[in-house]
Write a protein that binds this DNA or RNA. Structure first.
Length: 916
RNA sequence: GGGCGGUUAGCUCAGCUGGUUAGAGCGCCUGCCUUACAAGCAGGAGGUCGCAGGUUCGAGUCCUGCACUGCCCA
């Protein structure tokens, strides 16, 4: 790797090259650690993207955060396993292939189940890897050797094992219940997959004639077509308006069926007329009421939500067409009393938007309470921590109000339920492998249940199934519980909650290797059955206008497109820098553009470094170590930058520990650009100069420090910007790097002994002085090329000595000709500036603009007064002195002293200028 | 209906457990191709922290109410 970096930073080629290299060299593959291993372990499961997926900003945010945390741990010496894979995504994938078939003019049912599934596998082999390829482009440092697919044979076996065990434990049951049915997908879906939309609709009031009287009972409904399946009218027992009708019957309009009037709490007296229709086959509440009263359940729709033969004259009609016709007929026959505007919460299928129809059908359920209790306890007790904390409560609330989970889906693509029906006696046999004969009647004609399992059933098992469960493997001993789970809150219930339930249930009694547990800092945890010890929930990425990205709105930002324009590093940095925990990210391209500029800055700083190394000491390479080790302190700037680096290093490590990605990113940005480039590089330039044939030791020393600092800064930045740091780091070693990648080097750790408060204070004074001179020059409109003499008055002798010592730096950076120290304050002098520690005067004949200067002074005075005011109020307050901590009081005193000096100076200056 | 969050510079956002004169990037204005970088450098303007109360020695930060806005659940 040569030192010559191209002048322009072009991320594209660099990133592709290193992404390939990392995969090819298997840098992040983690062999199973043998017994006796004592290093800490960090394990993270990639939330598996759908095989049908295309990388979107949500993935990219998620993966950026995971990769930062993972690289950080790896560099800190953890055995770091990041496990990748994809999800078979039942509905999504099946739809994808059905669409493909449609283009060929074929239908799924014509093809038949087996052929269709073969087609899906073909599709998967062909296109299923796309999203993982995109991940590689992001630099995700996962262990590709361990890649899984949720329908792999070993994972499928584990799914069957889980199902059978749950069945044997009485936690899976089958039953005829009302479920959410998507007529478009022709399958049951879980409560979670139904999204409720508030839409303007109608509430219709229908009157039913009471048999043997002249009376009517009026009920209200938003779905009048379901009346065809009514099997009762309910009134509340306490409702005196209807007491006289108890035990009577009504004649169901249109169907001419007699149905009973029942008393049930389903009818609330204060709501509407107090009477409700009861349709057990089409409404979950009515279903419950029907059970209480032994009512018949009359389904009037089929799986497409078309009216069936039970709907009499309406059979064959689509449900909405039937609604119109029912209403028309009711009106015509005088049964429709009213039609009112009404806002209803319409349940729609999360995936296709079709209005969900509650439907009575045979489904499989998980009895969830026993699982939820343990899952709830694991979080309550702190065995699993959730950040940000507010999601903890959301999780607990949900767990407390959970309902049984419908796990069967009427799809073909997925894990088929391991249950068989005997043709002879209709017995249902649940088994790990296909049984040969019926356990009840001995019949041999057995057919497997056609339903498959909800996709989230298998993904909920991944924390242990990917590690070899149900076998007792070494991988489980080492890597279970996973250390962390990073995911979006949108799958908090779908996935996270289920992993916790399954993990706590199936891994009961599991114990992690104690040495590893101890080394990993988890010794205080009591429960090793949890799927992971920590959860970090990240926010949503929105568009620049804070709108949720969606295909229909057309505001989806394609991360690959952004990457193409600005580079992966810049895009990653954007997401990291904007990811304050708990707040959504409004993705703003201008930020990414700014971070590309940051990468460019680093690039050019590297070019500067290489230029000097090649000139001063070819072949110079950084030493190794956790910090800046072979480092020689010669000048103030050396002490200063070392101190700053250590402080920043401490902050970055702390920030990452708390998932404060934005803080980590911003700290590095400010350090690298604002301190290292803007000041340090400028300050050492004179030291890098040398005359031909003269002593080069100063230049050598400066170069050595530069290289070591740069190396450390690269390591500090690497988790956030892996590509550019790898490129420059490799170049620094010219092919003789101590490791295959910077990713395998040590992460910088702060050394308190290298924090130098005095150096930081002195440097701040110098910077202040330089900035004031630049400022005055601008105000006096000194031509940029002209150097002018300056006069400095320092209040304290040490400060004057310090400035004297750094005279060269001031002269150069402030573009000053000479510095003259004077004995008395320059506060009143025109063309001078004052601070609490010094006054500085730029000696230049041009008059300053008095009016503008007055204006500036007035503003500064105003600000100052505000500070002086609040400060004095506090210092005059005995309560403050008594109650505030000593350091706060002391700091305030010090600050007030400085403010007073400054204010005095400004006032005298204003007087001098004759400001009004 | 229940719950949770947001409201800080023209724009996009920081500001963790209350403690100096509230910060950054972008944009804007002025001046510079100063041999690492014009994707840059130097300087500058710009905010009564949504509104009204309260707690406190001290509030952008804590509490209450209100307004607007977003999300989740029913």
């Amino acid at each position: 790797m040569p030192h010559e970096l191209p002048k322009a930073y072009e991320p594209g080629a660099i990133e592709v090259r290193w992404a390939d290299y990392w995969v090819r060299e298997k840098l992040f593959a983690v062999p199973t650690p043998p017994p006796g291993e004592t290093r800490p372990v960090f394990t993270l499961l990639l939330p598996p993207p759908n095989v049908t997926g295309r990388l979107h900003m949500g993935h990219m945010l998620n993966q950026t955060q995971m990769d930062i945390i993972v690289r950080w741990h790896r560099m800190r010496g953890f055995i770091t396993l990041w496990l990748p894979g994809t999800d078979h995504a039942g509905i999504a994938t099946q739809m994808m292939v059905e669409k493909q078939l449609e283009k060929e003019g074929k239908k799924r049912r014509e093809l038949g189940r087996e052929k269709f599934i073969e087609r899906v596998w073909e599709w998967k082999r062909e296109y299923g890897g796309a999203i993982l390829d995109q991940m590689k482009r992001l630099g995700a440092s996962v262990d590709w050797d361990r890649e899984y697919f949720t329908m792999d044979e070993n994972l499928s076996r584990a799914v069957r094992e889980v199902f059978v065990r749950l069945y044997e434990q009485g936690l899976v049951y089958r039953g005829h219940y009302i479920v959410n049915w998507c007529p478009w997908h022709e399958t049951a879906i879980s409560d979670l997959e139904v999204k409720h939309d508030e839409v303007p609709g109608k509430l219709w009031e229908i009157r039913y004639p009471v048999v043997g009287t002249e009376e009517f009972i009026t009920v209200a409904t938003t779905r009048p077509e379901t009346m065809l399946g009514d099997t009762a009218i309910a009134v509340n027992a306490k409702d005196e308006r209807y007491t006289h009708l108890h035990g009577k019957k009504v004649l169901l309009p249109l169907m001419k069926r007699e149905i009973p009037i029942i008393t049930d709490d389903l009818a609330q007296p204060e709501f509407g007329t107090g009477a409700v229709k009861v349709t057990p086959a089409h409404d979950p509440n009515d279903f419950q009421a029907g059970k209480r009263h032994n009512l018949p359940e009359i389904s009037v729709m089929d799986e497409h939500a078309r009216m069936n033969s039970n709907a009499g004259a309406y059979a064959g009609l689509d449900r909405f067409e039937a609604r119109k016709r029912v209403l028309h007929d009711l009106r015509e026959q005088g049964f429709l009393v009213a039609e009112k505007d009404y806002t209803l919460a319409l349940g729609k299928c999360d995936r296709c938007g079709t209005v969900v129809e509650p439907r009575l059908s045979e489904q499989w359920f998980i009895k969830i309470k026993p699982l939820a209790e343990r899952a709830k306890a694991a979080v309550e007790s702190g065995e699993i921590t959730i950040v940000p904390e507010n999601f903890r409560q959301i999780y607990l609330n949900w767990m407390a109000n959970i309902y049984d989970w419908c796990i069967s889906r009427q799809l073909w693509w997925g894990h088929r339920i391991p249950a068989w029906t005997c043709a002879g006696c209709k017995e249902v046999i649940v088994a790990r492998e296909a049984p040969t004969k019926c356990t009840k009647c001995g019949g041999t004609e057995l057919e497997q249940v056609s339903d498959v399992l909800d996709t989230w059933f298998s993904s909920g098992l991944l924390p242990f199934t990917t590690l070899g469960w149900p076998e007792k493997t070494r991988d489980l001993e080492v890597f279970y519980p996973n250390t962390l789970m990073i995911t979006g809150f949108d799958i908090l219930f779908f996935w996270l909650a289920r992993m916790i339930m399954f993990g706590c249930h199936f891994m009961q009694g599991h114990e992690q290797d104690p040495a590893i547990k101890q080394a990993s800092g988890e010794a205080d945890k009591k429960d090793d059955s949890v799927p992971f010890r920590h959860v970090y929930i990240h926010a949503l990425v929105r568009d620049a206008e804070r709108q949720k990205m969606s295909k229909t709105k057309g505001n989806v930002i394609d991360p690959l497109h952004i990457i193409e324009r600005f580079g992966t590093d810049a895009t990653r940095f954007t997401l990291a820098a904007m990811a304050a925990p708990g707040t959504d990210i409004a993705f703003n391209e201008s930020r990414t553009e700014g971070y590309r500029a940051f990468a460019n800055k680093i690039w050019n700083a590297a070019r500067f470094m290489f230029m000097n190394v090649d000139r001063v000491e070819p072949g110079l390479r950084p030493g190794d170590g956790r910090g800046v080790r072979p480092y020689t302190i010669e000048a103030l700037e050396d002490r200063w930058i070392l101190s700053r680096f250590n402080r920043v290093t401490a902050d970055v490590n702390d920030a990452l520990q708390a998932y404060r990605f934005h803080e980590a990113a911003n700290r590095i940005y400010d350090f690298f650009w604002g301190e290292f480039c803007d000041w340090y590089l400028e300050l050492i330039k004179p030291r890098l100069q040398f005359e031909e044939g003269s002593d080069m030791s100063a230049a050598r020393m400066a170069c050595g420090n530069l290289v070591n600092l740069f190396d450390s800064a690269l390591r500090l930045l690497h988790p956030v910007m892996p590509f550019i740091t790898e490129e420059i780091w490799q170049a620094m070693y010219e092919g003789k790097a101590p490791a295959k990648s910077i990713a395998l080097m040590a992460y910088p750790q702060a050394d308190e002994k290298q924090v130098d408060l005095a150096a930081e204070t002195e440097m701040a004074i110098l910077q202040d002085l330089i900035v004031n001179v630049r400022n005055l020059r601008a105000e006096l409109k000194v031509e940029p090329k002209v150097k002018v003499p300056i006069e400095v008055f320092a209040h304290e002798a040490e400060i004057q000595a310090m400035i004297e010592q750094n005279r060269g730096a001031v002269e150069r950076l402030a573009n000053a000709e000479t510095i003259t120290f004077v004995e008395s304050s320059l506060a009143k002098v025109a063309g001078a500036r004052s601070t609490a520690r010094f006054d500085v005067h730029v000696v230049y004949e041009r008059k300053i603009d008095a009016a503008a200067e007055c204006e500036r002074l007035r503003k500064e005075l105003e600000k100052l007064d505000k500070g002086v005011g609040t400060g004095r109020r506090q210092l005059d307050n005995e309560q403050f002195l008594a109650k505030a901590p000593a350091n706060v009081v002391e700091n305030l005193r010090k600050q007030q002293g400085e403010l007073a000096v400054l204010k005095e100076k400004i006032l005298s200056k204003m007087q001098e200028l004759g400001c009004s």
